[in-house]
Design a protein around this nucleic acid. Structure first.
Lengths: 296, 296
DNA sequence: CGCTATGCATTAAGGAAACTAATGCACAGG
DNA sequence: CCTGTGCATTAGTTTCCTTAATGCATAGCG
């Protein structure tokens, strides 16, 4: 049995994937073999093994040509992207100018709503910086031990002692300016909630001792990105907070649907890299980040 | 010499990466070995090999504990993300509900400015859909042969015959409403350009026979995401077009800096999956896409 | 302050898995 | 109809991993 924080035990042997990726690119086992410095036989076996593993045919073997099957066509871009990622990441090492590269790990919402609008300022200040933003698939279990420079969203208790609090938010409902003709009615509006976060509709109503019995009617989004873009587009009212919604409120794309707010238990934290892991790039980024955020 | 559309020849053996990833997660070669059903000896050798390959130490070997080095801490999230991607993608196959998954390949700008605001509508219509958006690192060379459902930006001549044109745009300059106090002066403004695209400042001036000699003063962004967010934040004037800027113009975050526009030679194309690769998910998406876009 | 236990590095020899080479088969193209 | 191309398959060989033993450094403990 795998230990916790565990292995993707469902991960197929990577050599099989490599064989598949090259074959899909060339649409030829023979050429893939040439590329990987293997024999056609080896590729054929690898691909067959992978197909057995997945329980699906990846290629349609025509007499003198290969074609990707439905499954293969869907699998290819994922494998491709993964290899591209590794290739690009590896390049940063073998390519020499190591100090300029910064790998930043943060979630999708932060990346889209907070970081992205501020990137031009970052680049204006440090034009030499090469930023590699990685937004991991969210799984707190698997991301217990951090690496690189990381910005994490969560409750203080879940953070290590070294984590630096970046934000302190209160949460409140937001919607598009014209939603419900400007006169918001919570009893009829579409309420958008975000999974796994304390800033929920239930908590918000409770914080002001208002009755609330529409639990069953809440639309759940998996991330703030979905919930908030839905709100911007007039699809409903989403819970949000300053860090994420600040820009959209300022620009008028969103307005607050109520003056009442409650304390959001989650905050954004910077997991600082160990001092020995400091590079020109990480130092530059941290310096910029400090100036960008108000003290908490 | 590698063939064109070529191998990431710089890619290290993937078993080494696997050993590194597990070791970094556990901060222990011994536990990593246990997880991978290998021996401590093998892990030690693999990691050492990878370090030799990269020319950098990935771990700091303390007497009874491992620690990630600077290089290791930067490398880890990349490798991690790549494996997560594969694991998630593989899950879609082995997990059974294949038909609900759609892997969509499109570039960053389209994903952020066009797709993302419309996602709530897509989900509202097909709540069962599980979308996996892959935004590949842009390298036209390597993406010559496509796979899965893909939306590609480029010139008609570079597309295969089967490609379906989704958009037809004219390009024009855009900026924040208050930029330069509302009275735009192209001779003093910061001009933002996007690399590798025909909709450039040079082309725009030329299209109206206006003199233009500031080539050397153009700020170049690598993608529209950077150029346009910079513009939204009042950093300058960016070239853009309806498909990407439509939402931002409507919401007032951007305004056109000039009435003049010129034809953008690039368009967005849908590379339709071969008919045999059609799934409930891909059919749903294509149906929705058709309704979402005006006919071109 | 030693003693012991833990964890990484290294080596050599046996064995399992992976790759090669050789061959078979199917069918496009001339 | 013949030939060349490309994938599948099997038997043989190489490579790589395991096993096992050993060294080393030091954290934790009595």
């Amino acid at each position: 049995m795998p230990p916790p924080g565990s292995p993707p035990s469902s991960l197929p042997p990577l050599t099989w994937l490599r064989a598949f990726e090259a074959s899909a690119r060339h649409l030829s086992f023979t050429r893939a073999a040439a590329e990987l410095n293997l024999t056609q036989s080896a590729i054929s076996q690898h691909v067959r093994s992978l197909e057995n593993f997945l329980g699906r045919e990846l290629f349609i073997r025509k007499t003198r040509a290969l074609e990707l099957s439905e499954a293969g066509a869907n699998y290819m871009p994922i494998v491709r992207e993964a290899f591209d990622l590794i290739a690009a990441g590896t390049q940063a090492f073998t390519g020499g100018d190591q100090g300029r590269h910064l790998v930043l790990q943060c979630n999708m919402a932060f990346s889209v709503f907070w970081l992205s609008p501020r990137l031009p300022r970052l680049y204006a200040r440090f034009p030499w910086l090469v930023l590699n933003i990685v937004t991991p698939i969210w799984d707190p279990e698997r991301h217990a031990s951090s690496a690189g420079t990381e910005i994490r969203f969560g409750r203080p208790n879940d953070m290590s002692a070294a984590a630096v609090r970046l934000t302190r938010d209160r949460f409140y409902p937001v919607c598009a300016p014209g939603y419900q003709g400007g006169a918001v009615d919570f009893s009829t509006a579409t309420l958008l909630d975000c999974a796994g976060v304390t800033g929920s509709w239930g908590a918000w109503f409770k914080s002001q001792n208002r009755p609330f019995d529409r639990n069953h009617e809440i639309s759940l989004a998996s991330t703030y990105v979905i919930a908030m873009t839905a709100a911007v587009n007039g699809a409903g009212i989403s819970m949000s907070h300053d860090t994420l919604a600040g820009g959209l409120l300022e620009s008028g794309q969103l307005v607050r649907a109520s003056d009442h707010s409650a304390e959001q238990l989650e905050s954004y934290f910077l997991m600082p890299p160990p001092s020995h892991a400091s590079t020109p790039a990480s130092r530059a980024f941290l310096e910029w980040l400090e100036g960008e955020l108000p003290p908490v």
